[in-house]
Design a protein around this nucleic acid. Structure first.
Lengths: 142, 142
DNA sequence: GAATTGTTTGATAATCATTCTCATCTATCA
DNA sequence: TGATAGATGAGAATGATTATCAAACAATTC
């Protein structure tokens, strides 16, 4: 999904972010294919196109993109930053053993009940759910 | 909930773990009151009773207890190890901003649908669910 | 209850993802 | 053009966790 610089500039503009070359390449690499991307992975990919890129720049911009809603953080709770470009509502299945994350459709949740059970004031306008279990491969090896 | 050494020995016995003094105190400190305990917190509490305890020992034993089902890991996905003694089925509400975790009753999930939607082979026999949102305090400050 | 054997402990070093620092660079506007 | 704010790159710093390893201990056997 190669964006024109103008297109990216407009996107960044809406968020009040400067449309730098590094930002555009970082964004492109993530949006190019669906999936969950670690900072290291993004760094490796972007490094092929901008050899002088710094890992800190990747981290800075991933966090900025997430803050501004251009990317989604796969799990706001995880030990490793993972981002995804898929902004459609969906949830995640996480393997307790190997920590791998897979997407799952979300209509197994009764939102009415959930918000009734949540403490007053807890904002669930865009609830994101992570379901833990054991993936096929890990349950085979045990 | 002070356990006799004999009681703790029996508990450890079932898991094939030696009933050391350190282990008993660590376990007692967590089971004494409901709540989510970080390794540092447990270390601080246990340190009052066993000043020579090492942080590594706390980590080792928390992980062993979790492996053997004596404690539950609050989030298998988090950057900080948190454990709880509450083994009753329940789920967690996590604030995306401040990362604080609260308990929530679990019957907002349609397990039938969930397992239909999960990929074949994904083991959901004891699903643990984390729901992300924004806690009252954080949504007030924004 | 002493000897033996394997496990556990404590101190500390190592690891690893992430964040910080700061000098340099870049873009944009006055 | 020069000034100003923001972005970048290199590497050091951080902080939670893990690894290492000698010394201490628990459990089993005699």
């Amino acid at each position: 999904m190669p964006l024109s610089h103008a297109q990216f500039r407009e996107l960044a503009w809406k968020c009040g972010l400067a449309a730098t070359h590094q930002r555009q390449i970082i964004y492109e690499e993530i949006v190019a294919a669906p999936g969950h991307y670690s900072a290291e992975r993004v760094y490796a990919d972007v490094h092929k196109r901008i050899p002088s890129i710094s890992l800190a720049t990747v981290y800075n911009n991933l966090k900025l993109f997430v803050e501004h809603g251009l990317l989604r953080e796969v799990s706001p709770h995880t030990s490793m930053l993972l981002v995804e470009g898929n902004l459609e509502p969906h949830h995640h299945l996480v393997c307790t053993r190997c920590k791998k994350v897979q997407d799952v459709e979300g209509d197994f949740i009764n939102y009415k009940k959930l918000s009734r059970q949540a403490p007053r004031g807890f904002d669930l306008t865009q609830p994101l759910v992570e379901v833990f279990g054991i993936c096929r491969r890990c349950s085979a090896n045990s």
